[in-house]
C-alpha cells in the first residue's frame, strides 16, 4: 500500500525567507489530518508543495506514490483564497462541471455521468437551487460551498482543504464538517484550519506548522509543540476529555 502523501526533508524559501524547514510528513489511506499553526507559518505553502504547485528547494514529494504533477488530478483541492477571476462569466453549474475535466479529457463534451456527479455534489453542499447563478452573484460562503462541490466532483482520493470554513455560516459549517466525517470513510483528507475546536472534534490526527512541522502521527500535540510553533505560550481551550488536542498536563 503506497502512502497517500510522502514528504521527506522539504525546504522551501521565498527569497531569503525560509518558509518550510525540514518537513517530513506521511499521510496514510483514510487519514484525516488537521493542520494548525500561526498565520505565515507556511500552511498554504505546504499544501501547494503536496500538490506540486510549488517545487521545494530540497526534499522529496510523493503524492499517491508518484510525482504530484502526474497524480494531483486525483486530488480535490479547495484553496483558501481562490485564485479565480470573480468577474468571469460562468455559472455555478459550469464551475462544478469543471471539476470533471480530468475524467472527461479534452476534445470531449460533458456527458450524463458528469452532469449527475455535478448535481450530486451540489446537493451535498446544498447549493443545487443556485446552479444557474453567476459565480459573482454569490456570497463568500456560498462561493466556498461551490468550490467544495467542485473538489468533490473529481472523485478524489485525497481532499485538500485550506481554511474551508472561511465565510461559511455556523449552521453550514457544522453540516460541512459532518460531510467531511462521512467522506473520510472512503478518502483521505488534509484540512488547514484556524478553527481548533472543529479540528479537535472532527479530525483524527493533528499537526502544527510554523516553518517546522510538529506531528506525532496522532491527535495529540504537546504544549512544547505549540510553544515552539506559535512562539509564545498559547491558551488552549480544552473541550472536555473526548475532544482534547492537548495531552493532559
Amino acid at each position: 500500500m503506497t502512502e497517500v502523501v510522502e514528504l521527506q526533508d522539504i525546504w522551501v524559501s521565498y527569497g531569503d525567507v525560509t518558509v518550510l524547514e525540514a518537513v517530513d510528513l506521511i499521510i496514510q489511506d483514510k487519514d484525516f489530518l488537521g493542520i494548525i499553526g500561526p498565520n505565515g507559518g507556511g500552511k498554504s505553502t505546504l499544501l501547494k508543495v503536496i500538490l506540486g504547485l510549488i517545487t521545494p528547494d530540497r526534499g522529496i514529494v510523493k503524492l499517491l506514490g508518484d510525482n504530484p504533477v502526474k497524480t494531483r488530478k486525483h486530488v480535490g483541492y479547495v484553496p483558501q483564497y481562490a485564485s479565480f477571476n470573480l468577474n468571469f462569466p460562468i455559472s455555478v453549474w459550469e464551475v462544478v462541471l469543471m471539476g470533471r475535466m480530468n475524467t472527461v479529457g479534452s476534445l470531449r463534451r460533458y456527458g450524463k455521468k458528469d452532469h449527475d456527479a455535478a448535481q450530486e455534489a451540489l446537493k451535498k453542499v446544498k447549493m443545487l437551487e443556485y446552479k444557474d447563478r453567476q459565480i459573482s452573484e454569490l456570497s463568500g460562503g456560498q462561493r466556498q460551498r461551490v468550490f467544495i462541490a467542485r473538489s468533490l466532483v473529481t472523485d478524489p482520493k485525497l481532499l485538500i482543504l485550506d481554511e474551508p470554513a472561511t465565510g461559511v455560516d455556523f449552521v453550514m459549517q457544522k453540516e460541512f464538517y459532518e460531510l467531511l466525517r462521512e467522506l473520510k470513510q472512503h478518502i483521505s483528507i488534509i484540512m488547514v484550519s484556524h478553527d481548533i475546536s472543529a479540528i479537535s472534534v472532527y479530525v483524527d490526527k493533528v499537526a502544527c506548522l510554523n516553518r517546522k512541522l510538529h506531528y506525532h502521527n496522532s491527535k495529540e500535540l504537546s504544549p512544547e509543540d505549540l510553544d515552539a510553533s506559535y512562539g509564545c505560550p498559547v491558551e488552549m481551550l480544552a473541550h472536555g476529555m473526548p475532544h482534547r488536542v492537548l495531552k493532559l498536563h
Partner: peptide
Amino acid sequence: AFYKEFMAMCFDEEFASVIG
C-alpha cells in the same frame, strides 16, 4: 476543441493545473 481547457485556464489557473 479546447473550449473547456480555455475556460478553466481563464477562470482559475491554479485549479486548472491541479485538475490536469
